[in-house]
């Protein structure tokens, strides 16, 4: 199945894809559980999304439409590079429109546009182990997961409140998947955490350097950790996007000059662009 560049469809050989798909099936069967897999050498270094790319490569078919975003934007260097990589090695159609994509690979954000049952969201994950900073030993974290022994994470949240008066972590906020496994949702802002739960799309997570794959099947309960008297809550600066006027989407803060000027803009470029297009159409109508 090699194209004129000598690569197999979507770069990886078929046996590798099978191996990854087996891991993906295991991951879907045990939601939130980190499945070890034999991560391959990819043509970009660790830390640049090799895990996400391997997962995408394994689920991509010739009729798929691929969208790639990095921090919500389709037009950053990495998103562009990865999109082009798959365009070359798989010849698939690509898009920036969330609702047109069948496979969306993302780094650190979930699209604002609600996903559907026909879509797969592939997350790039740096550190898949939510307990890693609390318990450095891999042997021990495996035991803790096996036993569902997550007190140490609760202690961490307690410390946040004791030190800062609230749970201060604002991204890669730990979640409990399907009432069982403690999972790191990758460094998405905690603002996005509610979208993890009961999502119609299949969510797959790939960590290339750490060699782990995990999954949240469609319509799975996902609970962000908290305390009864300090419940999980998302935060919003309370201002609207300077470009499209949305006051409910996740905003990036952009420094515009060196006199302290700044503006808030939707992080999801597709979402923002769509709203601006609608406004223009409304205005024209």
């Amino acid at each position: 199945m090699s194209n004129e560049n000598g690569y197999n469809f979507a770069y990886l050989d078929e046996q590798t894809k099978r191996m990854i798909r087996r891991a993906l099936l295991k991951a879907v069967a045990v939601p939130g559980y980190q499945v070890p897999f034999a991560s391959r050498e990819m043509p970009l270094p660790y830390g640049w999304g090799t895990g996400g790319i391997q997962v995408t490569a394994s689920v991509l078919g010739p009729d798929d439409v691929l969208k790639v975003i990095d921090q919500g934007a389709d037009d950053t260097t990495n998103a562009v590079s990865i999109r082009r990589f798959f365009a070359r090695t798989a010849g698939v159609a690509t898009t920036t429109r969330t609702e047109e994509a069948t496979v969306i690979q993302t780094r650190h954000r979930i699209p604002e546009t609600p996903l559907s049952e026909d879509q797969i969201l592939v997350y790039q994950v740096p550190i898949p182990e939510p307990l890693r900073w609390l318990e450095p030993r891999e042997t021990e974290t495996r035991m803790l997961h096996a036993l569902g022994d997550y007190g140490v994470m609760q202690v961490e949240l307690y410390e946040d409140i004791a030190t800062h008066g609230r749970i201060k972590r604002s991204y890669d906020y730990p979640v409990e998947v399907a009432g069982r496994y403690l999972t790191a949702p990758s460094p998405i802002p905690k603002f996005d955490n509610p979208k993890l739960a009961d999502c119609p799309a299949l969510q797959l997570f790939g960590a290339g350097r750490e060699k782990r794959i995990y999954a949240i099947p469609p319509h799975t309960p996902v609970r962000s950790l908290d305390f009864e008297d300090y419940p999980f809550a998302i935060e919003h600066p309370g201002v609207a996007c300077a470009l499209c006027g949305d006051s409910t989407s996740y905003l990036d803060e952009i420094v515009t000059d060196d006199r302290g000027g700044r503006m808030f803009v939707c992080s999801d470029t597709d979402h923002c662009g769509k709203r601006r297009d609608e406004d223009r159409n409304d205005a024209a109508a």
């Binding site: 609760q154 305390f227 009864e228």
Partner: peptide, 10 residues
Amino acid sequence: RLMATGARHY
């Protein structure tokens, strides 16, 4: 120990 055995009220 309390948190490890399910205590969830800070």
